[in-house]
Amino acid sequence: MKISREEVIHVADLSRLDVDTKLIDKFAEQLGTILEYVDTLKSVDTKGVTPTSHAISMTNAFREDDEQQSFNRDSALANAPDKEDGNFIVPKVVG
């Protein structure tokens, strides 16, 4: 097996996911198959090859630091699952 049950749980945790216990073994098996396939990349000689992150060469896109129209507070909050007094409400963070 290319990826263990424990690794799936660890990576899921890093991804902020609680994978269903029933799915963990299935995921481990499927991800293992995919990663084995991805390992074919190892046979490609990439010595000295610059990696590509964007296919179109680009530089930083700057604009003048002028004030621009943005959302008003109501529309920014309109889709919030929980809100109060113009704020997003989340479960308690500190004790």
Binding site: V44, P51, A55
Partner: peptide, 8 residues
């Protein structure tokens, strides 16, 4: 590695 293969 994948990003280098992307270059190729």
């Amino acid at each position: 590695k994948a990003s280098q293969v992307r270059t190729l």
